[in-house]
């Protein structure tokens, strides 16, 4: 039971994923939403690496995790630039108040 198997890693990543989603859904601050996204990406990475180890896929899983990290970096940079712009325009970054396209 306490012997660590694949399921343990997967459950860890599932919980992490759920927490990320929760963060995305509930936080109003755009930066917090970004943090939730990072959590989700990390949970995905854990899955990749875990399957890479337990599934005998060689290092491809790790490579993909590496790519995800790179993409996360790029995404974070772009997203933060956008957040900065939003802040310049609306003087806050509460995404529920930024609904100009709705009307």
């Amino acid at each position: 039971m306490f012997q660590v198997t694949l399921q343990h890693f997967l459950v860890l990543s599932a919980i992490l994923f759920s927490l990320g989603v929760y963060g995305i859904v509930t936080r109003k601050n755009a930066v917090m939403v970004l943090m939730g996204i990072e959590l989700i990406l990390n949970s995905a990475n854990i899955n990749f690496v875990a399957f890479a180890k337990y599934g005998n896929f060689g290092f491809s899983g790790q490579i993909y995790a590496l790519f995800v990290i790179v993409l996360a970096a790029a995404e974070a940079a772009i997203a933060l630039a956008i957040v900065l712009n939003i802040y310049k325009t609306f003087t806050n970054v509460n995404i529920d108040e930024i609904d100009n396209l709705k009307e």
Partner: peptide, 12 residues
């Protein structure tokens, strides 16, 4: 609502 977060809840 026009709020992505709400939509995400629906998606979930």
């Amino acid at each position: 609502t026009g709020k992505v977060q709400t939509y995400i809840v629906y998606v979930v």
